[in-house]
Design a protein around this nucleic acid. Sequence first.
RNA 1: GUCCCAGUAGCUCAGCAGGAUAGAGCGACAGCCUCCUAAGCUGUAGGUCGUGAGUUCGAAUCUCGCCUGGGACGCCA
Length: 559
Amino acid sequence: MLHSLCSTLLQSGIPELGLKEIEQLLEKPKHKDHGDISFPCFALAKHRKTSPQQIAKELSQNLSGPLFQKIEAVGPYVNFFFDPAAVAKEMVNDILAKNSSFGTNRNGAGAKIVVDMSSPNIAKPFSMGHLRSTVIGNSLCLIGEKNGYKMIKINYVGDWGTQFGKLIYAYLQWGDPEKVAQNPIQELFTLYVKFHAEAEQNPALEEEGRKAFQQLESGNEEYMQIWKSFKEASLLAFQKVYDLLGISFDSWKGESSYNDKMEATISLLEEKGLLIESDGASIVSLEDESLPPCLIKKRDGATLYATRDLTAVYDRFHDYQFSRAFYVVGHEQSIHFKQVFSVLKKLEAPFSDSLEHIPFGLYLKDGQKMSTRKGRVILLEEVLEESIAKARENIKARNPDLPNLQEVAKEVGVGAILFHDLKQDRMNSIEFDVDEMLTFEGETGPYLQYTHARAQSLLRKSGETSFHFTYESHQKSWELIKELYSFPNQVEQAFNRRSPAIIAQYLLKVAKLFNQYYSQVKILSDSEQQESRLALVKAVTVILKEGMRLLGMKAPDQM
RNA sequence: GUCCCAGUAGCUCAGCAGGAUAGAGCGACAGCCUCCUAAGCUGUAGGUCGUGAGUUCGAAUCUCGCCUGGGACGCCA
C-alpha cells in the first residue's frame, strides 16, 4: 500500500517509466531521517542525461499529498515521509480484521508440491543432522500453505540399502537378541559402529555386508524378519521425536516401498538406451553434463539409492500429479540430485523441470562432519529433553503458579531448538554447541515467545476483547506498525527464497521493536489512549503468533 | 586433482535481484525493577566486509584469480 501510494504520486513526473517500474525502483531507506520510502534517481539520470540530484529536486517540487508529512529531495534521492496519523489506522485495522489470515495469499493457486523431508535412517538414532531436514521442511510446508500451495510432506524413511546388510550381518555375528529387544535403537547403533570399526581392520566385512543386503533384497526369509523388527522398533522411537516437535507427515512411504518397482525403472532406462555396463555395474553416463555417472545397479545386481530415488519420483507423480517436488536434503548430496535430475531429463519425464533440491549446511562437531559410522553423533532426543528441563526450571523460578507448566516448558524448550536452527540461512554449517542452543536470551525462540506472552498478558489484564485503533504520535509505534504491515511481503519472500530464516529474522525485528515500545509507553493506564494502545498490542500478538506458527513454533499465552 | 558451499565486530550471525552514515545478539564495561512478566530495556567500547584485480556514476552485494575452512567426487545414503 505504501509503495503504490508513492509510485502513483511519482508517475506524473516520470512519463518515461510505467507504474510498475517506478514501484520496483522504490526502496526502504536504512536511516530513519531518510523517511519511510525513497526513490533513487540514478536510473533516470542516465536517460535524461541530467544529474540525479537535479532530477530529485525537480521531482520533489511538484509532489505533495494529504497522506504525506513531507516529500523532500536529499542528494540524488526523493524521500517520502508519510503522515502516520493518516495511514496507520488503516494498516493496523487491516491486521486486526484479518487476524491470523493476514499475510495469506493465493499465489500458489492450490498447486501441489511434494516435499521429501526428514527421512531418517531406521536402525540409527535420530541425530541432530536429521533435525535440519525435518524442521526446514516442515517450515517450508507451512510457508508454502500460507502462499496458497498444497504441500505434501513425505517422510522418505531410509529403510533399505547396503547398510541393512551390514547391520544384519553384525546382528547375527555379535548381537544379543535380548538386549536388542530391550533397547533396540541404542543396541543397533552400537552394532553399526562396531561393524565399521571391525571393517577397518578386516575389509572383507564390507563384502559380507554387501552379500547380506543382496540376500535381503532377493527375499531371504530370515533376513526379512530381522529387518522388519528393526524397522518397527525404529519407527516407534522416531514417533516420540516427531511428537515432541509437533510434526506429522502425509506419507511414510520409505525406500523399501519401491523394492518391487525398481525393475520397471531399470527397463525404462534400458528402453531409452541409457543404461550401459561399466566394470560390471550398470550406469547412466552423464558425461555430456560433466557429471560423474549415475550408478543404477551394483556389480552383484543390487540397487542403489539413485535407483530408488528415480523410482520414487515416478510413483509420487502418479500419486499426486505434483507441480513441483522439493528435496530437503543436506548439501553434501547436491551431486546426487544433479545426477538423478539429469537422468530424469534424459528419460523425458514430464516432471523433469519441476524438481528442486533444497540443500542445507550440516551440523559440525569440532569443525568436522558428524559421522554415524564412527559413532560421532548427537542424539536429538537428549538435546530436546535437556532444553525442556531448562525451560521448566526457568518457568518455575519466574512464574511458579503457571498451571500447565509441563506443556509450556515443552513448547519453550522445543521452540529454542527449532528457532536456533531456523534463524540462520539454511546453507550455513552449524557448529554444534549445546550452550548456545540452550540459550534463552537475546535472539532466540524463547525471546519471541516471551515477547508474545508479555503482550498477551496486557490483553488479559485489560479484559478487552474488541479493539479499535487510532494513531497516537510516537516514533516507536510508527516503526512497529510499518514492520507489522510488511508481514505479507515477508511471507512471499520466505517462500520465493525457500527460506524460513526470513520469517525468523523478521520476527526478531518485530519483537525488538515491540519491547522497545513497551519500555517507553505505559499501555495499561486510565488514559483515553489505552484502547488504541491495546489494539496495537493485539496486532503484535497476531503477527508474532502467526509468524512463529510458520516456523513450527508454539506461542504460549503465559510463560 | 575437479566441482559445490562459506569467509562481515573477540564469538554467533543479519545485510547480498548494486545505492545514502555496514547492523543485531552474545561476551566486556556502565546503567534501568515502589511501575503493565528484567527470558526485558538503555548507553559505551569494538569493522582494511578473507585478499588482489575488474565491471559501474556507485561494490559487503556482480565477474575473475588467489588464500583459508567445510563438503562432495562409480558400486554408502
